[in-house]
Design a protein around this nucleic acid. Sequence first.
DNA 1: ATGTTGCTCGTTATCACGAA
DNA 2: TTCGTGATAACGAGCAACAT
Length: 487
Amino acid sequence: MNTNINSVKSGSIRPFDPHMAGYPRPVTDRLAYALRHFEYTLPPTDPRWRFLDEQPLASSSVRTARYLTKRAKDLWQKRIEASWRGPGLSNAPYLDAATSTQLLGLKARLMFNPGTLKLRVGGMLQSTVAPGVSRGQIRWLSNKSRSRILELTRELEAAEIYPQLMISLTYPRDWEAAISPEHAQAVWEFRRAWGRLNAWRYVPRGPGWGEGWQQRRAEVRAGLHRLRELGPDGKRVKAHLEAFRKRFERRYGTAWSLIWKLEFQRRGAPHIHLYLWNCGELDLAELRTWVSQAWVEIVAGCELNAYLDPQNRSLYDLYRESGGREFAEAMLGGMGLEVGIWNHLRAGTKVEAIRERHWGYLAKEVQGGMGKAYQHEVPRRYRNVGRWWGYWRYRRAGWTELVFDLASASMREVKEAIVKPVEAALKTLPRACRDFRERAKAMLTRFLKTGSFSAQKIDRDGVVTEGPYGYLTVWGHSAVQAAIGAL
DNA sequence: ATGTTGCTCGTTATCACGAA
DNA sequence: TTCGTGATAACGAGCAACAT
């Protein structure tokens, strides 16, 4: 079983790999992680290899595992000491730490804003983000971001703020050109190169024909490469949104507020939803016309009076009926109009009044439904997505935070200050939340008994461990009110 | 219109827990 | 055992509001 281990050239150091063939599996994933994470290495001449090799595979690994566990614990301990950089932190690999270390400075925090109540129990250890790690590409709407949107809607509901109006802004059929003119340019150049290459086939062969062919083929390849590089640019979308905001403010003032949210359609085109409130009574028909024209002009990037002229439009329809779309588009030039801009007229908008007094539409959109994953995934080649959502002209309510030092507080104090309010909050939950309520109650009982949220764990060595970290979040205005009342 | 500032949001790492 | 989900912190990028 150990041939591959022995075959390592002496002198080289082989990183530990728990999946290495013939190696007894470590007891837990956590241990495997520990060993891998610290790049636990053994030189091939290390006597411990023999020790490991001697273990029969079948009864693997009681001794081996015990040995490795001990080793891993030492490593965890080191890790914790290294990460000890100050208070207020959490999420260290505390489970393997010495008890005295992990419980020092343990705090319970009860925090609430108008819409959400959170109980957090945490210590002062922290795993920091590895140095040199920089942020990657935004690929999808993360769960954390989703939950933050919902947190905002609960906050708004608690303040009795509800959406009155939903506006959606959509891009036209050739949306890539609308967002990235340089992309349209690249498409045009690629097509031209392709045409030249094709045409060269029919040029009579003679001296130098081969070089000509090579040259044209290189052009096509370069064009293709450029095309791949030049995806639609998300920054333009945000710029369009900003332009829309300015126009809207000039037209309708600045009393309103809104949440905006980015989405993608299946064809890959971005799509923005605006949820407005505090916008007063607006004439919907008038607003629809205005929004539609404003958005089209922004996307097209110019005044559109000539394009919106009913005479021109009926002329186009006539051409289209008689000769098809391509013919009609060809005729646009004669009318002094550009095809690209004409097509931008199809940029779509939708304006809807929302009568329901809740944020259900946005919440549903954020959750996404069956087969709607594409809405929250960045399409291939799309660049600079930026943020998925944001809000304008609204000040967050802010959190109130009550912190208790569990080392110095008495059990009675903890019960009064933390457990009682949370229990009161739990009582407000509807019947459907029974399971959650029961689980939360069990957590609180355990918390009172042990000062910890996590369940007791007994590992293979019989070592009893307990995680001092835990969290509990209760949603809703009434829950928060109940908790405040019980304080 | 442009620059500056400060707040907010997305990614990174990790862990716990429950279900498959 | 393995996988998916939902938590945490810091940090830097992205955005909104303000100042000129």
